[in-house]
Amino acid sequence: MTRPVDSPIVVYGSRLLSPYIMLFGLYVIFHGHYSPGGGFQGGTLLAASLLLVRISSGSKIAQIQFSDMFTAPMAVVGVLIYFFTGLIAILAGGQYLNYELLPLGDMHGAELRYWGILFVEVGIGLTVMGILVSLYDNLVIGEDND
Protein backbone atom coordinates (compact mmCIF):
# COMPACT_ATOMS: atom_id res chain seq x y z
CA MET A 1 0.00 0.00 0.00
CA THR A 2 1.41 3.38 -0.93
CA ARG A 3 1.28 5.90 1.85
CA PRO A 4 -0.26 9.27 1.03
CA VAL A 5 0.54 10.90 4.39
CA ASP A 6 3.38 10.25 6.77
CA SER A 7 1.68 11.12 10.03
CA PRO A 8 3.20 9.87 13.29
CA ILE A 9 -0.20 10.11 14.96
CA VAL A 10 -1.65 7.48 12.63
CA VAL A 11 1.38 5.20 12.98
CA TYR A 12 1.62 5.38 16.77
CA GLY A 13 -2.16 5.32 17.24
CA SER A 14 -2.51 2.11 15.25
CA ARG A 15 0.52 0.63 16.98
CA LEU A 16 -1.06 1.38 20.36
CA LEU A 17 -4.48 0.04 19.36
CA SER A 18 -3.37 -3.19 17.66
CA PRO A 19 -2.56 -5.32 20.76
CA TYR A 20 -5.86 -4.44 22.40
CA ILE A 21 -7.85 -5.46 19.33
CA MET A 22 -5.84 -8.70 19.30
CA LEU A 23 -6.63 -9.30 22.97
CA PHE A 24 -10.32 -8.67 22.29
CA GLY A 25 -10.17 -11.15 19.42
CA LEU A 26 -8.75 -13.83 21.71
CA TYR A 27 -11.47 -13.04 24.25
CA VAL A 28 -14.15 -13.41 21.59
CA ILE A 29 -12.77 -16.81 20.53
CA PHE A 30 -12.34 -18.27 24.01
CA HIS A 31 -15.47 -16.74 25.53
CA GLY A 32 -17.58 -17.81 22.56
CA HIS A 33 -19.26 -20.50 24.64
CA TYR A 34 -20.90 -17.97 26.94
CA SER A 35 -21.42 -14.81 24.89
CA PRO A 36 -21.81 -13.92 21.22
CA GLY A 37 -18.58 -14.95 19.60
CA GLY A 38 -16.62 -17.84 18.25
CA GLY A 39 -13.96 -18.73 15.75
CA PHE A 40 -15.19 -16.72 12.78
CA GLN A 41 -15.70 -13.44 14.63
CA GLY A 42 -12.55 -13.77 16.73
CA GLY A 43 -10.45 -14.68 13.71
CA THR A 44 -11.73 -11.62 11.88
CA LEU A 45 -10.82 -9.42 14.85
CA LEU A 46 -7.31 -10.93 15.02
CA ALA A 47 -6.91 -10.26 11.30
CA ALA A 48 -8.18 -6.69 11.82
CA SER A 49 -5.51 -6.01 14.43
CA LEU A 50 -2.79 -7.09 12.00
CA LEU A 51 -4.31 -5.29 9.01
CA LEU A 52 -4.51 -2.05 10.99
CA VAL A 53 -0.73 -1.91 11.33
CA ARG A 54 -0.26 -3.11 7.75
CA ILE A 55 -2.44 -0.32 6.36
CA SER A 56 -1.15 2.51 8.56
CA SER A 57 2.60 1.91 8.44
CA GLY A 58 3.07 -0.07 5.23
CA SER A 59 3.63 -3.76 4.63
CA LYS A 60 7.43 -3.55 5.03
CA ILE A 61 7.34 -2.31 8.63
CA ALA A 62 4.43 -4.62 9.51
CA GLN A 63 6.61 -7.64 8.72
CA ILE A 64 8.26 -6.99 12.11
CA GLN A 65 4.92 -7.53 13.84
CA PHE A 66 3.78 -10.56 11.84
CA SER A 67 5.66 -11.85 8.83
CA ASP A 68 3.65 -12.77 5.73
CA MET A 69 5.62 -16.02 5.65
CA PHE A 70 3.53 -17.31 8.55
CA THR A 71 0.02 -16.47 7.33
CA ALA A 72 -0.59 -19.36 4.92
CA PRO A 73 1.04 -22.00 7.22
CA MET A 74 -1.16 -20.68 10.03
CA ALA A 75 -4.26 -21.32 7.91
CA VAL A 76 -3.01 -24.83 7.18
CA VAL A 77 -2.55 -25.43 10.91
CA GLY A 78 -6.12 -24.27 11.52
CA VAL A 79 -7.58 -26.64 8.94
CA LEU A 80 -5.46 -29.51 10.31
CA ILE A 81 -6.62 -28.86 13.89
CA TYR A 82 -10.23 -29.17 12.73
CA PHE A 83 -9.52 -32.19 10.54
CA PHE A 84 -7.58 -34.14 13.17
CA THR A 85 -10.19 -33.41 15.84
CA GLY A 86 -12.56 -35.35 13.63
CA LEU A 87 -10.01 -38.02 12.75
CA ILE A 88 -9.11 -38.75 16.39
CA ALA A 89 -12.80 -39.38 17.03
CA ILE A 90 -12.74 -42.00 14.25
CA LEU A 91 -9.58 -43.61 15.62
CA ALA A 92 -11.21 -43.79 19.05
CA GLY A 93 -13.94 -45.87 17.49
CA GLY A 94 -16.71 -43.42 16.66
CA GLN A 95 -18.05 -41.35 13.79
CA TYR A 96 -16.21 -38.45 12.21
CA LEU A 97 -16.38 -35.35 14.44
CA ASN A 98 -18.24 -37.17 17.20
CA TYR A 99 -16.60 -35.37 20.12
CA GLU A 100 -17.94 -37.76 22.71
CA LEU A 101 -15.13 -40.21 21.91
CA LEU A 102 -12.18 -37.84 22.16
CA PRO A 103 -9.57 -39.36 24.52
CA LEU A 104 -9.41 -36.50 27.02
CA GLY A 105 -8.89 -37.63 30.60
CA ASP A 106 -11.85 -38.95 32.51
CA MET A 107 -14.50 -36.62 31.10
CA HIS A 108 -17.43 -37.97 29.17
CA GLY A 109 -20.55 -37.00 27.33
CA ALA A 110 -21.49 -33.31 27.22
CA GLU A 111 -18.25 -32.25 28.91
CA LEU A 112 -16.23 -33.68 26.00
CA ARG A 113 -18.48 -31.99 23.47
CA TYR A 114 -17.73 -28.68 25.23
CA TRP A 115 -13.99 -29.18 24.72
CA GLY A 116 -14.38 -30.51 21.18
CA ILE A 117 -16.26 -27.34 20.19
CA LEU A 118 -13.46 -25.25 21.71
CA PHE A 119 -10.75 -27.03 19.65
CA VAL A 120 -12.78 -26.59 16.50
CA GLU A 121 -13.31 -22.89 17.18
CA VAL A 122 -9.59 -22.31 17.70
CA GLY A 123 -8.91 -24.03 14.37
CA ILE A 124 -11.47 -21.84 12.59
CA GLY A 125 -10.00 -18.70 14.19
CA LEU A 126 -6.49 -19.51 13.02
CA THR A 127 -7.66 -20.22 9.47
CA VAL A 128 -9.75 -17.06 9.16
CA MET A 129 -6.96 -14.88 10.56
CA GLY A 130 -4.30 -16.42 8.33
CA ILE A 131 -6.37 -16.28 5.16
CA LEU A 132 -7.63 -12.70 5.58
CA VAL A 133 -4.11 -11.37 6.25
CA SER A 134 -2.68 -13.49 3.43
CA LEU A 135 -5.31 -12.19 0.97
CA TYR A 136 -4.44 -8.59 1.87
CA ASP A 137 -0.71 -9.24 1.61
CA ASN A 138 -1.10 -10.83 -1.81
CA LEU A 139 -3.42 -8.08 -3.09
CA VAL A 140 -0.92 -5.30 -2.31
CA ILE A 141 2.17 -7.17 -3.57
CA GLY A 142 4.43 -4.92 -5.58
CA GLU A 143 2.61 -1.73 -4.56
CA ASP A 144 4.65 -1.11 -1.43
CA ASN A 145 7.34 1.32 -2.50
CA ASP A 146 8.57 2.63 0.83
Binding site: A110, Y114, T127
Partner: peptide, 26 residues
Protein backbone atom coordinates in the same frame (compact mmCIF):
# COMPACT_ATOMS: atom_id res chain seq x y z
CA UNK B 1 -23.18 -27.82 28.32
CA UNK B 2 -22.61 -24.66 26.29
CA UNK B 3 -24.99 -21.75 26.84
CA UNK B 4 -24.43 -20.18 23.41
CA UNK B 5 -26.65 -22.20 21.09
CA UNK B 6 -25.19 -20.65 17.95
CA UNK B 7 -21.79 -22.04 18.91
CA UNK B 8 -23.25 -25.49 19.50
CA UNK B 9 -25.03 -25.52 16.16
CA UNK B 10 -21.89 -24.25 14.43
CA UNK B 11 -19.40 -26.55 16.10
CA UNK B 12 -21.35 -29.67 16.93
CA UNK B 13 -24.63 -30.29 15.09
CA UNK B 14 -23.40 -28.80 11.83
CA UNK B 15 -19.68 -29.39 12.31
CA UNK B 16 -19.30 -31.10 8.93
CA UNK B 17 -20.84 -28.03 7.28
CA UNK B 18 -18.40 -25.79 9.13
CA UNK B 19 -15.49 -27.95 7.97
CA UNK B 20 -16.70 -27.34 4.42
CA UNK B 21 -16.92 -23.58 4.98
CA UNK B 22 -13.44 -23.54 6.45
CA UNK B 23 -12.13 -25.41 3.43
CA UNK B 24 -13.78 -22.83 1.16
CA UNK B 25 -12.05 -19.99 3.03
CA UNK B 26 -8.76 -21.86 2.86
Amino acid sequence: HTPNMVTVVLGDYRSMDTLGEQTVIF
